[in-house]
């Protein structure tokens, strides 16, 4: 199912949760809404579901305007962060709920409901646990029950609000992979909300990065990581160093020292700017070259390479770079760091 959001806005009291969101989602896509808390990502998901209504703007499912349709009439699957299972019902009754409450003429026969519930429980690998109560299950199992329950009404759109947020790291990773498989196998369109960049980058076809109620970037995980559209995205996704600089023609000055940056970085820049680069996109150069002067404060192993932390001369800022295991400087040593791949954003440092 395709979804189109047209200038969606929403405020709570005086607080603007969402400001004029435009977004298109392709059928079969697995989309992540990524952002810090308060970025409006959950509100946006709830508006797509019909659990919340926008102050202005329209929501389209397959080109049809369903903005005013209530959640009960939209037929979407919604999975809550804290599962929201019905405690007084067995697992099987929970999964069957969306079917058993239907009007008699739309309701499948009892035997058929039982079959479908069993199939769904098998699908989420809980085939034997239909008679248990939610309280007797682990967190990961509960979330799978919640998923089976949402899938029982055969939605074409699956919405997940921080689906792995309440689970421990190990279970989260397994469930993540499994969810992606499920999405592909069932031909669903899925949107999930997360504040975990790893989760978004690993799972999604496209990632929507949000901050303060606006979309900062919509792109594939690779593009988000390699070509962050704004300083916020660079900072929020992946590890990064941030250095305030002044751009003067084709010269970049950082803390009164000339700094060599890759030439492409400079395009159209002038005046105060912020230079961003990833720890693995930098090298240590000799004193004669134009690099950032820093004093090494910490050296530690970091998955295959060495992470070097240094304090920049002339400021309190830290810089972090990754170097090959044999090439790490000693603690207290003076080094010069030059980014090999970087991005400049206009404005002063935040």
């Amino acid at each position: 199912m395709s979804i189109r959001l047209d200038t969606i806005g929403k405020s709570f009291g005086g607080f603007t949760a969402l400001g004029d969101i435009n977004l298109e989602i392709e059928p079969g896509e697995f989309l992540a809404l990524l952002g810090p808390s308060g970025s409006g990502k959950t509100t946006l998901l709830r508006i797509v579901a019909g659990l919340e209504f926008p102050d202005h703007g329209r929501v389209f499912y397959d080109g049809e305007d369903i903005t005013d349709l209530k959640v009960a009439d939209r037929g979407v699957g919604f999975v809550f962060q804290h599962y929201a299972l019905f405690r007084h019902m067995t697992v099987a009754d929970n999964v069957a709920f969306g079917l058993t409450i239907r009007k008699r003429r739309d309701r499948p026969a009892k035997a058929e409901i039982r079959d479908r519930v069993q199939k769904l429980l098998d699908l989420v690998q809980l085939g034997q646990l239909g008679n248990r109560y939610p309280a007797q299950l682990s967190g990961g199992q509960r979330q799978r029950v919640a998923l089976a329950r949402a899938l029982a009404i055969e939605p074409r759109l699956l919405l997940l609000d921080e689906p792995f947020g309440a689970l421990d790291a190990r279970v989260r990773k397994d469930l993540r992979r499994w969810l992606r498989e499920l999405h592909d196998r069932m031909g669903l369109t899925s949107i999930f909300v997360t504040h975990d960049q790893d989760e978004a980058l690993e799972l999604a076809d496209r990632v929507v990065v949000m901050d303060h109620g606006v979309i900062e970037q919509v792109a594939t995980p690779q593009q988000i990581y390699d070509e962050p559209a704004s300083a916020f995205v660079f900072d929020f996704v992946g590890e990064s160093n941030q250095v305030p600089v002044t751009v003067d023609g084709d010269r970049v000055i950082a803390f009164d020292r000339l700094l060599d940056v890759p030439p492409a970085t400079l395009a159209g820049m002038g005046g105060a700017a912020r230079l961003f680069f990833r720890p693995h996109d930098a090298e240590i150069v000799g004193e004669g070259a134009n690099g950032l002067a820093a004093t090494v404060t910490l050296v530690r192993p970091n998955s295959g390479s060495m992470r070097v932390e240094g304090k920049l001369e002339g400021s309190d800022r830290l810089v972090e770079i990754d170097v090959a295991q044999g090439a790490a400087p000693g603690q207290g040593e003076r080094i010069f760091v030059r980014p090999t791949r970087a991005k400049l954003y206009a404005g002063t440092a935040g």
Binding site: A49, H82, L85
Partner: peptide, 24 residues
């Protein structure tokens, strides 16, 4: 959450009260 879950599964207001709110 429980009420919203029931509603998202297609329950009417009364069904939501009866099956999700009241048992809790």
């Amino acid at each position: 959450d429980d009420e919203e879950a029931a509603l998202s599964l297609g329950a009417t207001g009364w069904q939501t009260f009866w099956h999700a709110t009241l048992p809790n």
